[in-house]
Write a protein that binds this DNA or RNA. Sequence first.
DNA 1: ATAAAGGCCACCC
DNA 2: GGGTGGCCTTTAT
Length: 174
Amino acid sequence: MRQLPPQSHPAYGYSPSPFGECCIAFSNDGICALTFPESRESAFFDLNQRFPETDFKQNDDKAQKLARQIFERGEKPLIHPIGTEFQHSIWTALQSIPIGKTMTYAQIAQKIGRPKAVRAVGTAIGANPIAFLIPCHRVIRTDGSLGGFRWGLECKIKMLEWEQTKHTQTNHNY
DNA sequence: ATAAAGGCCACCC
DNA sequence: GGGTGGCCTTTAT
């Protein structure tokens, strides 16, 4: 089941973040994409490939406001992830992993009641459209190694360390 | 309809 | 450490 793409006032913009520049896309329905791309060009390309019929206006101001809300104030703005039923079940499961903790790909598969679909779980996690807010970086392999990360392993490590240290003692609502 | 490609895992060496 | 086969979803032929 696919939902509607962003409809009302779709926009996107770039902002600094603790993990390098990010690209945030949003509409009145909420954030539909949060990425940590190599370049602005690739971010824009990905966005248009994902939503071919949507015309996003550029709005760095709003993007930066959202970024401050997320990374400085530790808030979680409304999100609007778009994907299949299977993907949603996984993205939902991810959001139940507490900050500072990790789960394995196999455990997520268990949690959604599809213990044998581990491989597909990995794929669906890789398709997470809203990095950080849907904490796909908190999923690692059963053998304890890190597994992959769409935006580079370096970035995954940074996020885990960041959550481990300075934010374990403060308030957060992720 | 079907093939190919995945952020995996268990099992072997 | 590295390689193989099996598993399941998604996307592109």
